[in-house]
Design a protein around this nucleic acid. Structure first.
Lengths: 233, 233
DNA sequence: CGGCCTATTGATTAGCCTCAACCCACGTGG
DNA sequence: CCACGTGGGTTGAGGCTAATCAATAGGCCG
């Protein structure tokens, strides 16, 4: 549990330019609504407008909903990251916590209006949007054209970059999301995800530790199975 | 074939703020590189840096490449739209024309640097990125969780909004892309796309006219088959 | 009118999903 | 301290959707 001051300072340090005056910072600060949510909670955001959410601690998922109860995890986000949460469109979106999290919630329109006074803030927001766009496009390729094994391999490589830690020379990942979340992110079922874990484990490429731990024994082999384009065009 | 002046004026009108001074406009103008490409041409963009591409006329596709020659169409774009084309990352991207097109190509970094002087330009860029992000997230849901029929129905509804024209009270679409492009956009094969067209045709929901024409006879029925979430959460 | 490329249709196969049972880690309470 | 219960995860058998392989039809160009 972080204090609001700690959270906002961290946010300002990462997403607001250093040169910003005290009064400008205070205005942004007044827009921030702190949300301290337990594990596995859906945030009740107003679906009528866009939001910006800063992850101070914990981990979250952004989920899109289709008919018949089908869900697609559109993005996972981790501490220090800023997320653009869209209003309801053809489909509706839900933001949920994967574990106990401290968040700062902004109304997008207000934030953007305030940012109009400083190009650097907009530039930073634009960078956030662009990196989300890149990840989303990568996900399209994964969902549209990759096999189940490739999807899990791509997922693990991505998570290794984002939340992996070095341990005894190997990368270790403590996955905050359940098999269901992984399945909903990769467009598969939990059974298929489980089977792919078994395959990678039997090949000696990864080792699983409990329910959430994954040790990447052979990162090269994992990348080779991720379906990346190897040669230059 | 549009002149450079016509193209840039159109671009400026849509994506640059009205209040911009003449000298600032000239600086943006000096960054624009006109490209007049025939049908089905891959633009040779430097893969080492990001680009912005404005579509003056024609139609284009942004394609992501995986191993084994598998392609995923990540986005289609039409006249008056601005596209963010990323540098090579885990996968490489290609921008290709669907038909004869007039384009303006900008180096992203130069453009963004110049935009630093005017928040309104950045705001406009941010809006562009956000709408691309929204469409990409919708695509993730389609690719991850929808059946073949739902994918084609969603695709047709989307195209109706973007390039459909009213004709005799019905929406008519002249699709600039081939069945292969549609398949690569929906994560299916051309045969499956073709079969889904046959199904929708036999149901009396759409009528096909030649290879590229589609008449939406029953838009409601099409939307009902698109897998949208109907009730509010 | 002829040739070519794209689209459609058909038969079979493969990969993932569905349904079902079992296992295991963890938390609880006797 | 251990028996039990619970929920997530794994494993197995069979079915179904879309892919693959193959052949035909049809629009569009010269």
């Amino acid at each position: 549990m972080m204090t609001f001051a700690e959270q906002f300072d961290r946010f300002a340090q990462l997403h607001l330019p250093a040169h910003l005056g005290d009064d400008a910072i205070l205005r942004f600060r007044s827009l921030a609504r702190p949300v301290d949510a337990a594990r596995d909670v859906a945030l009740g955001l107003d679906e009528g407008s866009d939001h910006l959410v800063f992850v101070s601690s914990g981990a979250i998922k952004l989920v899109a909903h289709a008919s018949a109860g089908r869900n697609q995890v559109v993005a996972f986000h981790f501490p220090d990251e800023l997320v653009v949460v869209p209003a309801r469109a053809e489909h509706s979106y839900t933001l949920s916590t994967l574990r106990k999290s401290d968040l700062l919630v902004f109304d997008y329109a207000s934030f953007a209006d305030l940012a109009r006074g400083d190009p650097a803030v907009l530039r930073s927001l634009l960078d956030t949007a662009r990196s989300s766009l890149s990840r989303s496009r990568e996900k399209s390729l994964t969902l549209g054209r990759k096999t189940a094994t490739e999807r899990l391999a791509s997922f693990l490589v991505g998570m290794a970059h984002r939340i992996g830690v070095e341990r005894e020379g190997l990368t270790f990942i403590d996955l905050p999301m359940s098999r269901r979340d992984i399945a909903d992110s990769l467009g598969l079922t939990i059974e298929t995800v489980s089977r792919q874990f078994t395959i990678l484990r039997d090949l000696g490429i990864v080792r699983t530790v409990g329910k959430s731990g994954v040790q990447l024994v052979d990162l090269r082999a994992l990348e080779a199975r991720a379906g990346y384009l190897t040669e230059a065009a």
